[in-house]
Design a protein around this nucleic acid. Sequence first.
DNA 1: GTCTATACACAGATAGAC
DNA 2: GTCTATCTGTGTATAGAC
Lengths: 243, 243
Amino acid sequence: MNYLKFKKSLSNYAKDFFNEDSFENRKNIRIKKESTVAKNLEKIFDATLKISNKKGFQAMTMRDLSMESELSMGALYSYFSSKEDLLKMLQSQRRSVTKRILEEYTNHETGIADKLRTAIRIHLYLSEAMQPWFYFSYMETKNISGPEQAKAIESELYTEKIFENILNEGEKLGVFLHRNHQLTASVTKAMLQDWYLKRWKYAKRNISVEQYAKYLISIIETFCLSTEHEKSAKKTRGENESH
Amino acid sequence: MNYLKFKKSLSNYAKDFFNEDSFENRKNIRIKKESTVAKNLEKIFDATLKISNKKGFQAMTMRDLSMESELSMGALYSYFSSKEDLLKMLQSQRRSVTKRILEEYTNHETGIADKLRTAIRIHLYLSEAMQPWFYFSYMETKNISGPEQAKAIESELYTEKIFENILNEGEKLGVFLHRNHQLTASVTKAMLQDWYLKRWKYAKRNISVEQYAKYLISIIETFCLSTEHEKSAKKTRGENESH
DNA sequence: GTCTATACACAGATAGAC
DNA sequence: GTCTATCTGTGTATAGAC
């Protein structure tokens, strides 16, 4: 699966972003008409991400948001009851979408080495497709009140656990070496996050998400794959001695 | 060099943090007596980091800062002229200190493989010793106005370049393999940063900075060292087949 | 459903006594 | 050098017309 294919298949999800079923915050919104809600919420969320990623969520004023979203302040407040509420809605909506996509794509692989590769790829592709939100979420959730912050931490540990489990399973099967898999999972996550946190840097250097994925996979596999599997993996990755 | 030794040797630097020579912002401060400035600025900076790392710099009010630093609002404003000015002072002061320390410690090594190891170690040790500032700096500098933000980016690329140069030099000497060294340097930086960005996680798991350093070095070396050097490196690191 | 106008709280910053 | 009291701008949020 390459990025283009991934991105195309995403459009199926975009449609029902704000469906009553999948969108638990629907009840808090005063507006009746479904299509109006979908249209304007998208505007609002996009504007929020755009402004916040420039100057921070706290520094974004409702007047900023009103300008950028092309809705009056009065109109804005018929979609949420407070600035904090807006943040919660945005987070819960996006979090549920990403979780659903992640699980759907990663459960297909059967081979354990492929599982690791796919997990890395899909994580990267997803953060590429939704970069503004991933960036926002990393930077802002730490400042949120109690229960929301707990969800952020839970989410961090959840995706890390995915990698840890794959590595553990692979060791049992003799595919991966004995390592501190928890630590490997942590630093893997760190490298995945760097992709959306320093996007400006990689963009300037013309590194594509495919290249980055391939590089990351080769680092992790070189470290984790047992010797015999490493040889065939190198071939699959299309590498020769001098890279 | 282990962390304890490193930390002890740091106290020599702490003394002249606010020396007229090394502290360019001294002239903007109305207070005359040197020892008062040193004492109170430390209080102010510490309080700033503490509050900001909890709720963000923007969300920190001057009343918060007044409480935490045990100085009245009036007193605060005799040390800086605005909130933004406080941020600039804190950044420039800490940046100059870290740069000086980094260069001093990393220039000692002669062997190229040791150079890489030391660079990793010192970066980690330094961010461990000054974790609150490193965290703050990562999270907040993006929201700063023009020239300050440029300095932050410059700093990011500067430390990355250090690693890239070491890897390039090592390849010429036949110690390191041919890789995309710029990319390796980037992800190395990402893993270094994870140490101070997710400190709560590593603390909870009782991972020491020494352990993290060792692990990071082994990942990078496994990926970069040429075969013959890798064998001796494993011995030096005290590893056997099953880690 | 969306707008304009406005209430009200709280932020950053300063004046002037001690 | 440090304090308390206060000014003034700006932010969030709402009321009520259209």
